[in-house]
Design a protein around this nucleic acid. Structure first.
Lengths: 205, 205, 205, 205
DNA sequence: GACTAAGCGAGACGGTACGTCGCGTCTTAAA
DNA sequence: TTTAAGACGCGACGTACCGTCTCGCTTAGTC
């Protein structure tokens, strides 16, 4: 989480003193935030609105998230936290398509797309948010790309010197380009085309 | 300009009564807006701030731009209006690299990067802005990609069925991915790598 | 007024630019404040409450009064501004009783009492308020005492060396003592008793 | 103390079970409160502030004082509890001056002045506080005035029908008038002047 | 010496109000 | 008729305290 205050690496002080925060509250807040985001877009995400909808005091929100931005990020993280691994299908193309297509679907059909659109400016601009997003989301995605690429190399489908980061950018850059700038459709045709281009570009010589 | 109100198509006979609008004002406003955007990020772009910095009354701004969003878009359009064509070098790779690298440099070194970061959320979200941006910027870029790709096809460097839109996304998606999400460096290495991957992917079979 | 911003002593800049403040608004605000003060005591005097009751935006209040304290003082000043002079009755005792009794009545029967009770702590504590109160209210009262005492001396009812300030304190101290501390009744018996004691104390030897 | 909860009127048999409250805590709390009051005025007296300064939990304070008001009153009572009697000097003027001057000094030089300034609004406004203050402080003072006046009458220095309450108000009204409203100096000249006026007013005919 | 009830520190929580910032509109007088 | 100046309504921000409510630990007593 974004502002887990006392995450002291090892040996916690046995237990935290004081009344523990209700985990239920946490959920309620994030749910309310997500709904507002969906219903009224990013301008509809106000701390006061979330408080009202969650039936929670504004202070309770500020106790957990230093600012509106942090709350927004938490919503995002909360939605993205489960970047499940793509299983080994012994089919590099299939795996990559599955991977890219999952992102396309999430961004194109769920709230995630709107959330990302709304937050991208802050993600690019506010240092704390940028850092958190890169550490949690970008890094996870690159790691998964690496796994898939490594499998592809092992199978002889990709060149051994394939650059993971560039691979990640080539595979997902077009997806976000559509989401943010061109307004292009996020449909099921996108992933195969991108993946095919990628495979052709990095086929073993 | 976005909402030049009195653009009297025909000839305004009878001269204008009253105080004439200062054409200089327009520039001053956009300059101030651009500077604020650069100095303090999106949150620093406020109508009141622009008015103060430009030494202009808020009313004057609202007479030209219906809302903050429109002003923001005007700033962007103002900066991007000159998408010059890439000259024919009889070198497909060179032309593409020049094209992509120009974007990389503009986004990486000038205010343009910050402006784009700041506006991308609105660009993706506010219909009017999205429309305007696509019509003016995205479309221009795709057209230029088409020209370059066509030249490449003619030279036998690219497959005849190369998809312009996908080409555009593969070439620029990674650039914006770095600008918006990963924070990757926008340096001179990026363009060649992206272009090489693109060329490999769409080399004639 | 407390925060009349541009009170430049002489030659104002001809006229103020911009939309002039609606004097009606001023009145509405003070009225609302006074009513709240009366209905719910000092804890009932909240800027938000006044705004709601006056049908005015909070900002409008803050544009006129820097803080809640200033608003409160304005209410007080507004109520007290008309310290009318006591007419010459050719009767020192009668004049003094009329003077003291008027204060007793105002403090005992009108909102003024509650207002004073509520504000006295800030009046004693916040330098700006203290200063303003002394300049506008205390000073006016002392001046009036001086007038009455001078007339009394001229008539031979009072000693020539009567101290105005002490006179003021002896005449009004008991009144405020009851209002603030002892809760003693502010009735029509108070003024004559205080004045008689005062006259006896300062009778010519 | 104001709200010693378990003051079981009759005999609490069976002793109290459980850990008894630390009497030391009581002191620490009142000390902290007094200091805050002195350092930052009434607005500086916050339960949270007292808790922090006293190194005590908020709960501990609320276990002893139902509200902030009660705490404030406790501070005041704590400071005022020792209204020592003025010894018989066989000198009415001297005794009265000593009495008034002691109040002047306490209010002028010790924290007591600031505490009174800070609390006077609540003292005048909150019924419970008003009651307690009158019972404990005002009454004690009037009783002492009565003793002194009675001695003065016995000595032939004062008229037999001198009104104790009015005497009290004439003697102390000016003192509080300076403390609360006029900001006049609380110095050693005040007591003699007030007492002399009082004696002159109530000299036997 | 273990049990038990209260004291106590810590901090979450729902509230109310604060004072501030920015938006977009409206009203004035001057240029 | 444009412009500068600024009042105004509005919505949200983030903060400060209030008083209440768990928590779990500590510290007396009594059994």
């Amino acid at each position: 989480m974004v502002n887990k205050r006392s995450q002291n690496g090892e040996a916690a002080t046995l237990v935290a003193p004081g009344r523990p925060p209700r985990s239920e509250t946490q959920t309620t807040i994030l749910d309310a935030a997500r709904e507002l985001l969906a219903d009224h877009g990013v301008h509809g995400l106000t701390v006061e609105g979330v408080a009202a909808r969650a039936g929670v005091a504004k202070t309770t929100i500020y106790r957990r998230y230093r600012s509106k931005d942090e709350l927004a990020l938490a919503v995002l993280i909360d939605m993205v936290e489960d970047i499940a691994a793509i299983p080994d299908l012994d089919d590099t193309r299939g795996e990559l398509i599955a991977f890219v297509d999952r992102a396309v679907k999430i961004l194109g059909r769920t709230l995630m797309g709107r959330v990302m659109q709304g937050l991208v400016s802050d993600l690019a601009t506010v240092p704390a948010l940028a850092q958190a997003f890169r550490d949690r989301v970008v890094a996870a995605r690159v790691a998964e790309v690496k796994r898939l690429v490594d499998r592809g190399i092992a199978r002889g489908d990709l060149r051994a010197d394939t650059d993971y980061e560039l691979a990640n950018e080539l595979l997902f850059g077009p997806v976000y380009y559509r989401l943010f700038l061109s307004g292009g459709r996020l449909d099921s045709k996108l992933a195969p085309r991108v993946v095919d281009a990628f495979l052709a570009a990095f086929a073993p010589s």
